[in-house]
């Protein structure tokens, strides 16, 4: 009944007279309503983003003083592990000497550190999110002396670059800053 009324209305106004005042009001009201609905929906969605206390806890400071040459430490940052390695001169030389242009994710070692001695990378395998082993001396470090992911067999080198296995990318380098020689802020 009403749908036929709509058609009659279309015939009377739409087809014959072109756009009418009613069409304009319908569009304006609809646009206003859509804007209002979107504005009302935003808080309902945004609440799922990190809350203020979560954001406040998103940077950490790490004292590098006790870390010996060749030692690896693991710190927790934003709920994830960060590998901090004080590399020996040989390890730095070895990482720099790699012909990086042929790697799966080509990147020179110099681009991955601020100070060559300190390698800081997020310890989450870029394949499917497991934590590669190699932080403790007893753990398997893989064929390239860096890290080895036990989930699907990705090998990382001493620069945290992917060398072999299914992972597509190098271990990401987080945003960090040396506050002093022995103090670094991550995040």
């Amino acid at each position: 009944m009403v749908s036929s009324g709509d058609t009659a209305e279309e015939a009377a106004h739409g087809a014959v007279e072109g756009e009418t005042r009613r069409d304009f009001l319908m569009l304006a009201t609809g646009a206003f309503g859509a804007f209002g609905a979107a504005a009302a929906a935003w808080p309902l969605i945004h609440q799922m983003n990190p809350a203020a206390d979560t954001l406040a806890a998103s940077t950490i400071e790490v004292n590098l003083e006790p870390i010996q040459p060749g030692q690896r430490v693991l710190v927790k940052w934003r709920g994830k592990p960060v590998f901090i390695v004080r590399r020996t001169k040989e390890q730095v030389k070895e990482a720099g000497a790699v012909n990086w242009s042929g790697l799966p994710d080509p990147e020179p070692d110099s681009k991955r550190t601020q100070k060559p001695e300190w390698l800081i990378v997020v310890g989450v395998c870029t394949h499917l999110g497991c934590i590669p082993s190699g932080s403790k001396p007893s753990e398997v470090k893989g064929e390239f002396g860096g890290w080895f992911c036990p989930c699907h067999g990705s090998h990382y080198d001493t620069s945290g670059r992917i060398r072999k296995g299914p992972a597509p990318k190098n271990l990401p380098v987080p945003e960090y800053k040396f506050l002093s020689d022995k103090l670094v802020k991550i995040g």
Binding site: W42, P43, H46, Q47, N49, D53, T54
Partner: peptide, 13 residues
């Protein structure tokens, strides 16, 4: 209280 202070728009919800 965390909902009121820290969660985005938590106070409103």
């Amino acid at each position: 209280e965390r909902i009121m202070r820290d969660v985005n728009y938590g106070w409103l919800i």
